[in-house]
Design a protein around this nucleic acid. Structure first.
Lengths: 356, 356
DNA sequence: GTGAAAGCGCTAACAT
DNA sequence: ATGTTAGCGCTTTCAC
């Protein structure tokens, strides 16, 4: 059915070796021969099989990409960066998504290993404690993590703690005192932890009391009554919400609007991710921006440096690469006039009794 | 470096055939032998090479996916549908994006052919006139188009003309008379044409004059002065905009807001795609919804039916599959009281002189 | 400049 | 139940 190099050789009246050379090293074959071979290739519509090629040579020029989901544009943006460089450098991408499921993560890694990918770019829930990554090390399969906040493994990310710290400080600078952090129900990720840490540090530095993250069901149409109660009732209701990612921020904003709250008048919102789409919202979403596309590009470059052996192992190049974050001060944040605020009588009391 | 079946055989003290059987048909080998082999596999951390397997057998269980971009969530949503089924059915996906570039489309197809993908799922700009698709037919490579509006080739899509027709009729039902269609600068796609056709038909049916699509630069931060002039100046300015996709609608909405227009009070907006994200906007974006995820799933199923030969060639199953669209009546559409409108003195005049 | 032949990792007859 | 062997499509010595 599909023509092979043999068919071309027969058609052209040369050996398969000559055909192979005509394809891979045209200058080493007689121009006349070359022409004949090329005509046969065209006539048969022949394309050399990468399978044969890969089996023979040691390189597959295949890179595996494992992402939690594409429903969150964060990962689509990263993938764009990867894809751009991969295409330019003649590599192919094999994509698998996991939906944050450990079984699927394991399966994806197995599958990609079987395809002899030369390396892996991936995002997992928790990099430090992930047994599969140890196995990768053991199997000698090179990988680079994206967005995972760890110093123990090769990774490209922003400093999630510092980024959250900066973002929450900005909220505080706008006069907010009662700031709550919201997280998705799948909050057990390393980056979510780091973001909460940054939040807590910013709060404490300002003499405020951090609260544990409030979990919000991402997929529900409305905010749950208990969450709404947290956000809206009582004199100690928060005036600002730090959402652990932009998609969550958008869901929360919709929930608040449906509960007849005005943004930012009744509640300020700060997201995390810096999705391009956030700027198109009304009001434009304030966010702590990660350079997602660049993270993808950097992960690619790091991986390829290691794959091709260009990697500088002198120790000067560290395992992790931290890209700079930035703050997008969107209109979802309002300033609070401090006169409206009644600070707790004693800071110590406030520390012992979080406002939530 | 990477262990092969030979290494396992040597380690276990059996032949490679036995190892192969232990992997692919465990029940045909002695339980004790099986156990020994499995221990060796674990000890060596062996994974069978798909390259060897694929080369031997005729099936690669590889499907190629070619998409214009992942920056538009439409395609990410489709890909999600595909990925879900592919993973469940043990197929692997090779992804390439083209940025609507013909060279990259050609290159992607070549590359995927070389990898002996069993089929292709793709979205191109214009399916009817696409020479590469003829070449696929010629090469005997199975494919299914997504979102391409053609009856000549295997495809899964909504009825873009009818969908646009329904959407614009809804605008008209809300009292709008001067409705403009906006399209991205890369408007030369089959679906964009069909959508404009539906727009034009709805207008004409209502005795209104359709205008040619107004091109908007997708990537610019602001709407161009000339576009803004079209949209805002004069007594004959449009009261509603039909945007050829949701992303464009969002860009346009931002541009209008920056020009101090209120949505929907000063301008109604209708998008096309039904992006999940649109519902999170404020006001929620009215849109003509395509079931993107389902389109991906259906394309997968069609392709696999053909790949595995399950495809019903009795003629009852048509080349194209049209999935139902739906209207999302978001808050970006306001009703116009007809009394505010001054219809053109003579319909015939109006036909000869479009309002733009 | 070209050809013959080995071998990449694996599966599937066929043989024992 | 297990081993031997041919061969999938290709690249690459090594001859000529």
């Amino acid at each position: 059915m599909i023509p092979t190099i043999k068919d071309v050789a027969a058609h052209a009246g040369f050996s398969i070796a000559t055909v192979s050379r005509a394809i891979n090293a045209p200058h080493t074959v007689n121009p006349v021969t070359l022409d004949t071979v090329r005509q046969s290739i065209d006539a048969l519509n022949f394309r050399p099989s990468q399978l044969g090629r890969q089996l023979r040579g040691e390189r597959t020029r295949l890179i595996g990409v494992i992402l939690p989901t594409l429903a969150n544009p964060v990962f689509a943006e990263c993938l764009q960066g990867i894809d751009e460089l991969a295409a330019a450098q003649g590599y192919r991408l094999m994509l698998m998504t996991t939906q944050y499921d450990a079984d699927r993560e394991r399966h994806a890694i197995e599958t990609l290993r079987e395809h002899r990918v030369e390396g892996l770019i991936l995002t997992v829930a928790d990099a430090d404690t992930h047994p599969l990554l140890d196995e990768l090390d053991r199997a000698g399969l090179l990988y680079v993590l994206m967005h995972n906040d760890t110093v123990r493994r090769p990774s490209v990310s922003v400093d999630n703690r510092l980024a959250a710290f900066d973002g929450v400080r900005m909220l505080i600078a706008h006069g907010h005192r009662r700031i709550l952090m919201l997280a998705g129900t799948l909050a057990a990720s390393d980056r979510a932890r780091q973001r909460h840490l940054g939040y807590a540090q910013a709060m404490q530095q300002a003499g405020l009391t951090p609260a544990p993250p409030l979990e919000v069901d991402f997929n529900a149409d409305e905010l749950s009554p208990s969450v709404l109660a947290h956000l809206t009732s009582g004199p100690n209701r928060p005036t600002a919400l730090f959402c652990s990612n932009d998609l969550l921020a958008m869901v929360v904003m919709r929930g608040l609007r449906r509960a007849r709250l005005q943004i930012p008048h009744d509640m300020s919102i700060l997201g995390f991710d810096g999705l391009a789409m956030g700027e198109l919202l009304s009001p434009p979403l304030a966010s702590i921006c990660a350079p997602n596309r660049e993270i993808g590009c950097a992960a690619w470059q790091r991986l390829l440096a290691r794959v091709t052996g260009t990697y500088d192992t002198s120790g000067e190049t560290s395992l992790t690469l931290t890209l700079p974050h930035s703050l997008r001060e969107g209109a979802t944040i309002a300033a609070i006039s401090n006169s409206n605020e009644k600070p707790p009588a004693h800071a110590s009391v406030s520390v012992e009794r979080p406002f939530v």
